[in-house]
Design a binder for these strands. Structure first.
Lengths: 207, 207, 207, 207
DNA sequence: CATGAATGAGGGTTCATTCAT
DNA sequence: GATGAATGAACCCTCATTCAT
């Protein structure tokens, strides 16, 4: 996508990157507002302040925009995770404290990026094709897997997989509409989300 | 839409009702397969074995079909709930036992009606308009509210509302894709769902 | 394409067939006027007096229209050939007389169907895919092959193939723009076409 | 377009001319590959190694490129013809020998310039506008006219015109796809082309 | 009532051409 | 001059809805 970017003048490259970001921002907004199917390339272009044709200068089509947005989400999450996790002692803290540290940034990310959930809700993908948004959650899932394994050394791999999947599904559900809430509402939702996760894990005997 | 149904001959009315059911069945299948946006009125008609024109004899449009399907789901759930709940002692059982009795029929309903979730996932609705599917969950929510109130008499109404909402959202997330699983997979998912609900409630101090 | 046509009422079927003919007529006109690439589905629809959407009731797309038109040409040519050839003694007549009898109907067909040539001139087909119009010429080529073989029993198959190909290519070239000529011009062009064919064959030693 | 070329420095002019040649080369290749309609100005620019904007520095548009290419073909053909014809005695040789000497360079030119035929095949021109490629053939036609007149002094002008036109049309048809053939195939095609021309002329009573 | 052909606005996308840099 | 991003009209096609039969 950006292999020969270096050949261009810095100013051009900068403008191109800004355009790409603007398009992805516009796409994210549209996704949040009307979902994937009703997000049109023309509406993305309009929202990004460019013409329909220009959009195709940067992306090969609607799907490519979704892919790039998914990638951008994944990169941002990875960066956020690195920051939040890197400094944290994983084995010592209480479960509820750990959940707060690990989960809160993810919640915040969902609040900040209401388009994210729309990508998970895509209904136009044949079953056999992975939804390109999956890597976003995989970043999260991988970290969870690591933490749970470190704290529960003997855990059965199949059980681990089930637990992670359950956490992801619960989490997705609980993030629904969180961006539309006011600050107090979001904090309440975040508290319930933490409670649900801690409660589930505790009940499951996972520390 | 059906106000003057009584004027028609019984046989006509019966045929009309059968047609309506066929249309709703077809719509549910399509919804399950491709989601709301990609469900076309023509495909519904084809699946129902009627012509596109006939479909509009019974429904004023695509939206009206979704509404009617939501209503039908609500009615079915209400009926099922009545049956499953009516005979049950609500205050005595262990939480985990109660959850099994209350939640399992709902899980089964989701398994049997994969179109249901597609209605919750609609992205084409302006925020201010309630999703017509909500009544389905309201049926469930009302019963949950009743049970929780009976078992936890002094509970704060605001807290109650938050708990119910959280349960609903978790539940929705956990039902995602359950119809596509095999029997063993469904049972595992059901077990995790129960664990999540029980764990959340227990952690919340709700019995 | 028309497998279950019989199920429809006769009047509907008749109208459908008329529409198909109208679309093919319109397509042929457009092809003759502006060529394949510049023939648009919308212009075909407009010329056929229908809406763009209606066109797709009868054909799956632009390519399918070209295919159907090619088929219709092939069928018409086959019918014409049968009539002109069936009653003719092939071995006895002078070459020039035979050419007149065999070639004139083909010339007339090209005059009557200026869209035909546009199909041969398509530039959008990957080499490996046969142009769907080929069968039209194949009908002609097959008859030529038969005649030449009967009159020149010992002819080498490779030479035969080369001769037929050459005749076809010459012929295509000579039909260019014939529809735009007036009656006298057409007759002159036909005369030259016959002369070219007879001359080539005679020079080649083929009787 | 190039009126004030003289004002520029020689080096600039030279670079400009090189650019023009590069653009015409690129256009010819594209024409050969995909035909006129599917040849895009952007693909020409890319193939010429310049930007789309630069292309418009040298040509006012797609049509102008086709015109210039036609002119270049015409000039090249004229030069080639001069060379091949200048040294030849036109009245003495056998017809078949003369045809070989006159026609072979033209065939070779078509082999070497597969884009040429694509210009003749343009379908986007209103009837009233002459195809700008015609001058190419006119060069050829003029020489043919001259030769035929010299060898057949009393020929009727109308008949002469008809013969020349017929030769051109046959020839065009026979050049179709010749570039795609291997060496042996090309020689066979050339032989048939000569046979067709000789045969036609002989049958027509033209020596 | 049922039918299914007809409609036409709008979707994703391309490309000849323009213009700020 | 050269660049290549930007433009927007037009392309092929879909689908919710209507209407003549």
């Amino acid at each position: 996508m950006a292999e020969d970017t270096a050949k261009r003048t810095p100013v051009r490259r900068a403008r191109g990157l800004a355009r790409i970001e603007a398009i992805l921002d516009a796409a994210a907004s549209e996704l949040a507002d009307v979902g994937y199917d009703r997000t049109t390339t023309n509406s993305i272009a309009a929202r990004a302040g460019i013409s329909p044709g220009s959009l195709y200068q940067y992306f090969s089509g609607k799907e490519a925009i979704a892919d790039a947005l998914a990638e951008r989400y994944a990169a941002t999450v990875a960066a956020k995770q690195a920051g939040a996790f890197g400094v944290t002692d994983v084995t010592t803290p209480e479960l509820s404290e750990l959940v707060r540290v690990v989960v809160d940034p993810i919640i915040q990310f969902n609040v900040d990026n209401p388009g994210l959930l729309a990508l998970f809700a895509r209904t136009d993908l044949p079953e056999r094709l992975a939804n390109p948004i999956e890597p976003v959650e995989e970043t999260f899932a991988a970290r969870l897997r690591e933490i749970v394994t470190q704290r529960n050394p003997g855990i059965d791999p199949g059980e681990l997989a089930r637990v992670i999947e359950t956490l992801i599904l619960m989490f997705r559900g609980l993030m629904k509409g969180i961006s539309a809430l006011d600050t107090a509402g979001r904090e309440r939702r975040a508290a319930e989300t933490r409670a649900a996760i801690v409660g589930y894990l505790a009940h499951r005997g996972i520390r």
